[in-house]
Nucleic acid binder design. Structure first.
Length: 139
DNA sequence: GCCAACGTTGGC
DNA sequence: GCCAACGTTGGC
């Protein structure tokens, strides 16, 4: 079981919209970055991820689950790009902001802090536990 | 709205 | 294969 982090600008695709898709989930399409794509290719069904609002909020707001493994991205005909599907699992009791992560011991190496432009990131087991604790939810 | 960081493209 | 130009992301 691996952990991940998905970034989205809430003006484009928000947590509320993700929740509205329910258990069926939604294609995480539109990613045009090789590193992000490779991360999605490494995902398995049942992997969990944080849902992060970039630009507006700048905070982790919920937990999602991978519900379909990487497949061609329907938003393009370019065969280079594929993506997974994710579904909302539960919101954090308390959103965890980027600022919180920057000052939290143990999160210094988190991609969210160091590699701000990567839109789909791996999260370590330890980082997962820390952010869940900060967010007031069970890991 | 600005700009730094970074990724991609294309000329050579 | 190098690198300058350009476009995009995302924090501030």
């Amino acid at each position: 079981m691996a952990y991940w982090l998905f970034k989205s600008e809430p003006d484009t695709w928000s947590w509320d919209q993700q929740v509205a898709k329910g258990a069926a989930g939604e294609e995480w399409g539109g990613v045009r970055n090789y590193q992000a794509r490779n991360n999605m290719r490494a995902m398995k069904i049942g992997d969990l991820g944080f849902f992060y609002h970039s630009n507006v909020g700048k905070e982790v707001v919920g937990i999602v689950e991978v519900c379909a493994e990487s497949a061609p991205d329907s938003t393009t005909d370019d065969p280079r790009w594929d993506c997974v599907h994710i579904r909302a699992v539960r919101p954090l009791a308390r959103p965890v902001t980027l600022e919180d992560c920057k000052v939290e011991p143990g999160l210094e190496k988190m991609a969210l802090v160091n590699n701000t432009r990567l839109s789909v990131q791996p999260v370590t087991d330890e980082e997962w536990r820390i952010v869940c604790r900060m967010g007031g939810v069970e890991p």
